[in-house]
């Protein structure tokens, strides 16, 4: 059973498809990385090193931008990425914090 999957070849994040534990090793392009946090199904993992401002690509399209630099194999979520859509469309008040 695969622990992580790639949805689209252009994606720079992988999707966790079974619950993973901190310290557990995962393999990305045949290189092993140790997880720094627990991860649940559906969460994102950096497929490559990402820099602040980089677009996060899932489904082959941007789903937001990085707020800080992130190493390969690290969790990508609310703590290090944000919506581009909300700020650029001034809908912050309608959709809350990203």
């Amino acid at each position: 059973m695969s622990e992580i999957i790639l949805i689209n070849n252009e994606d720079n994040v992988l999707i966790c498809c079974s619950p993973l534990k901190k310290g557990q090793e995962i393999s990305i392009d045949s290189v092993k990385y140790k997880l720094e946090s627990d991860l649940d199904i559906g969460h994102k993992i950096a497929r490559k090193a990402l820099s602040k401002g980089d677009k996060v690509i899932k489904y082959g399209v941007s789903i937001g931008s990085m707020l800080s630099d992130t190493e390969i194999g690290q969790h990508v979520h609310l703590h290090n990425m944000k919506s581009d859509y909300i700020s650029s469309h001034t809908r912050q008040s309608k959709v809350g914090e990203a």
Partner: peptide
């Protein structure tokens, strides 16, 4: 409203996508 982070969704556009 953005869903909560359950299921790993981070942004509105990700949910919509």
């Amino acid at each position: 409203a953005p869903g909560n982070a359950e299921g790993g969704l981070t942004t509105q556009e990700e949910k919509s996508m």
